[in-house]
Design a binder for these strands. Structure first.
Length: 245
DNA sequence: ACATTCTTTCCTGATT
DNA sequence: CAATCAGGAAAGAATG
């Protein structure tokens, strides 16, 4: 298992400034096949993939300060100005692997014939105590690990996952990051389900969204029921992995 | 235990 | 008139 303090940077050093998430993701599907040798199935002989393997392993959590700090200290952040976007991209992709590929690789029979809800419950029980997360250093915003999904991330994932969306929200202008709430009641209901809060409604939800204006995660736009992702929001752009899945 | 951040709840008033 | 927007205020939840 790779800890951040021992992260090899061979792959990072081969990154180029024009590497985008799409290109990165074309490499990712090759990773799970080598996840058989160590605790998380990571093949230590595959020297070109340790960094990605770490990012896609259960140890990595979005916004991991150690990874970011390492990227800063080694100059990778300068080489890749969109480094944090790449992290977000890989993290989202990793979630899919966690849910599907990884589970099936370890226990090929457990996911057969189990309904989705049951599967998620079993998954939660199995993974949470067994897969320790890297604990971040205290002090900075960046260090927060997201065990619970933030509202804006939930909205972003809805937009990127039509099968979950139920037509509650849709892109208004994908390139600009503007989106429109189509069914406000459904939108609030979905968020309420996420937070296990039956009392959620669009009025409360929209208040929470308006709080994001100040932090730059969302920006105000004209028009009712219309919002726009701000500079602090990431992972919603065209090369997001959700578009590929 | 405490500080910080994020979210919820409630509210008043304005706008569509 | 109903739905929505804009924020203030305060409390609760999550997290380090």
């Amino acid at each position: 298992m790779y800890h951040s303090s021992a992260l090899p940077l061979t792959l990072l050093s081969s990154f180029t400034a024009d590497l985008n998430s799409q290109a990165l993701l074309t490499e990712l599907p090759t990773i799970p096949s080598s996840w058989d040798c160590s605790e998380y199935g990571y093949d230590v002989n595959d020297i070109d993939l340790p960094f990605l393997a770490y990012l896609t392993s259960p140890d990595y959590s979005s916004g991991d300060s150690d990874v970011c700090n390492l990227a800063d200290s080694t100059g990778v952040s300068e080489t890749l100005p969109h480094f944090t976007d790449l992290l977000a991209t890989v993290t989202t992709h990793r979630k899919n692997l966690d849910e599907q590929v990884l589970q099936e690789k370890r226990n090929p029979h457990t996911s057969v014939g189990v309904c989705k809800e049951e599967k998620e419950k079993v998954q939660e029980k199995k993974t949470s105590p067994v897969t320790p997360r890297v604990h971040n250093r205290r002090g900075t915003k960046r260090n927060r690990t997201h065990q619970s999904v933030h509202l804006w991330e939930f909205v972003r994932d809805l937009l990127l996952s039509p099968h979950k969306n139920q037509n509650a929200v849709r892109w208004e202008n994908r390139k600009e990051g503007t989106f429109r709430v189509v069914k406000s009641d459904m939108f609030a209901q979905l968020w309420g389900e996420q937070k296990k809060n039956k009392c959620m409604n669009y009025e409360k939800l929209s208040r929470a969204l308006r709080h994001y204006y100040k932090s730059g995660i969302l920006e105000r736009v004209d028009g009712r029921l219309t919002y726009k992702f701000g500079k602090k929001a990431h992972g919603w752009r065209e090369d997001s992995p959700k578009q590929l899945t």
